[in-house]
Design a protein around this nucleic acid. Sequence first.
DNA 1: ATTGCGGATTAGACTCATTCTAACTGATTA
DNA 2: TAATCAGTTAGAATGAGTCTAATCCGCAAT
Lengths: 148, 148
Amino acid sequence: MIQSLTDSDREHLQEALNRSGQKVTAQRETVFSVLLAERDHPTVDEVFNRAREAMPGLSLATVYNCLETFVSCGLVRQVNHERESTRYCPNLAPHAHFRDKETGRVHDIELPPEVIKSLRSILPPGFDSEVIEISFLGRAQGTDKNSN
Amino acid sequence: MIQSLTDSDREHLQEALNRSGQKVTAQRETVFSVLLAERDHPTVDEVFNRAREAMPGLSLATVYNCLETFVSCGLVRQVNHERESTRYCPNLAPHAHFRDKETGRVHDIELPPEVIKSLRSILPPGFDSEVIEISFLGRAQGTDKNSN
DNA sequence: ATTGCGGATTAGACTCATTCTAACTGATTA
DNA sequence: TAATCAGTTAGAATGAGTCTAATCCGCAAT
């Protein structure tokens, strides 16, 4: 079930959009609330279907637009795995992704600063990296429910 | 320019194919030699164009088939970045990829065992991973030529 | 209260990497 | 020689994502 944004989430959205010169709209609020409601790294289609429950006239193109907007203003991260559909997650803390081979679910894995540092340290001189993507592929046990 | 395989490379190919019950064919040799000739993580299209020089009748579907075969028998790794075309590399030693934002080039980054270990150690209990993909995005300086 | 403007939204057309299909080839086995 | 079977081929189909052009809507200026 979709619920509308809390005041603090709405503020967060507004602040980020304004910062990059864009407006809060009903569609953007709806799409953002879908991302926050269930943190299971949905695809565009999944976001679309969920958002339609709350806003039946919403178009797929708008969902693409909204998500792209959120990514560009740093509200949301894209998660790509192999060549599957892009997924979206609102967790901005540095984290890796673990993809369960069997269920297809994506889990966030916390990424301690010292691990990031050790990764950066393997870059030869002259290589300067802004973004590091880390994804595990395997089997996760006893995770039938939560944190997908 | 495409050169044919060295004896040892041909043997390597043969051994891997046989191991998984598949045959050495002229097309597979050609495609494999393209991968070995220039280790710049080519896309399927790039492989196709290079291979056509040596074997004009070769079809794109066959290039897809050959590459898939190599991946399935562990001869070659797929490299995906965002949703760009899949690239292929014959470097099987554990390594990360560094993508140059400006040039689009992909560089291999050696991955020391202790870094792999520290990465595995961040997985919560119950998570078992076979594959870890690591990719950096940034700027590489003074790499105008080599090791793309 | 109108009008004009610009960003946002929309439906549908389009792209393009990849996959699928069905016919064909060619080597090996019966 | 026929049957078999993996591999190859051209072209059609798929599907995620992007583009386009029309419309909508809120707001500022008249």
